[in-house]
């Protein structure tokens, strides 16, 4: 199995490495997929990461923010970040000219526990922008298909125009080695060929063996609450439910303090936590 781990450390731990935005792919309103490539050729080849990890991206003159990585380490060379235009740094990022210079450092955080996931079924449940970190795990699993049993993706959006990676995921529906269930809450224009309804309804369409499955859940907190109920009803162990958390992060390496939740640093101990961790951390959800 792919075993990454070599976090970049420059002259300053905090100094980003130069990289360029080589392509931007509009996704849905206010969301773009940024393809980023290091300037230094050796780093293009050596940079690797674990699905679920994040990196710190700097826009010169504006600042730095954490982003989860949407690409898979099985497809090296270009790093993909699915970004919503929502804060100071992301707004500046959306306004950059083609081939703009940015700074990158990382990868940081624990990422998904790949050793534990190996040999199990994977159930990925995403809502909205929650697809961004889960896409990394999805392609990692599909590119290492023999290492996992069944791979199931459940992804829900509000309407067809708000589905991230829409065509890429629609293409998975006919694939035999993955069960891809896509749903939208509403389809006002009647153009949606997949399912309609909230993401939890997708549980009616699958048989899951909770003893041999890990669930990775990422999405808005409302969705999380209902998905959690479903998983617990299906007798999932709290250790087998994984989630990715968001916090204010200004260093990424457990120093600046901002991402502290109770007793843990989201940047060092997370951003992937089990549901059991979540119950034991105040303020977590």
């Amino acid at each position: 199995m792919y075993e990454p781990q070599n976090t970049l450390q420059g002259p300053s731990l905090y100094q980003p490495y130069p990289a360029r935005i080589i392509r931007t792919l509009p996704q849905i309103p206010d969301h773009q997929l940024f393809q980023v490539r290091f300037e230094q050729e050796d780093m293009v080849k050596s940079f690797t990461y674990r699905p679920g990890q994040f990196l710190m991206l700097s826009v010169l003159g504006t600042g730095e923010a954490p982003f989860s990585i949407s690409s898979s380490p099985t497809r090296p060379g270009v790093i993909e970040l699915c970004v919503r235009q929502i804060g100071r740094v992301t707004k500046a990022l959306f306004n950059l000219p083609p081939n703009a210079l940015v700074g990158i450092r990382g990868p940081y955080g624990n990422g998904f526990p790949l050793e534990q996931l190996r040999g199990n079924n994977l159930l990925l449940v995403a809502g909205g922008l929650g697809m961004a970190p889960l896409r990394s795990l999805l392609w990692y699993a599909l590119d290492n298909r023999a290492k996992f049993k069944d791979v199931i993706l459940m992804y829900g959006g509000r309407n067809p125009d708000e589905m991230l990676f829409k065509y890429e995921l629609l293409n998975l529906i006919d694939r035999a080695d993955v069960k891809c269930l896509l749903t939208v809450d509403n389809d006002p224009e009647g153009i949606w060929k997949a399912r309609i309804g909230v993401v939890t309804k997708l549980f009616d369409h699958v048989e899951i063996d909770p003893e041999n499955t890990f669930a990775a859940v990422c999405g808005p907190s409302v969705m999380f609450k209902f998905v959690l109920e479903k998983l617990l009803q299906r007798n999932f162990s709290k250790d087998r439910i994984l989630m990715s958390l968001e916090r204010n992060m200004q260093c990424g390496v457990g120093k600046c303090g901002h991402c502290m939740i109770g007793y843990k640093y989201t940047c060092l101990d997370g951003p992937i936590f089990t549901y059991w961790d979540a119950i034991n951390l105040p303020e977590m959800i």
């Binding site: 905090y14 600042g63 730095e64 120093k255």
Partner: peptide, 24 residues
């Protein structure tokens, strides 16, 4: 207490600057 905040400060040329950390 070691928490700090990080921000970029732009010089008057609007093309260069510093990344700064400050007690938070």
């Amino acid at each position: 207490c070691y928490c700090y905040a990080v921000f970029d400060e732009l010089n008057l040329d609007a093309a260069s600057g510093q990344r700064i950390r400050r007690w938070d």
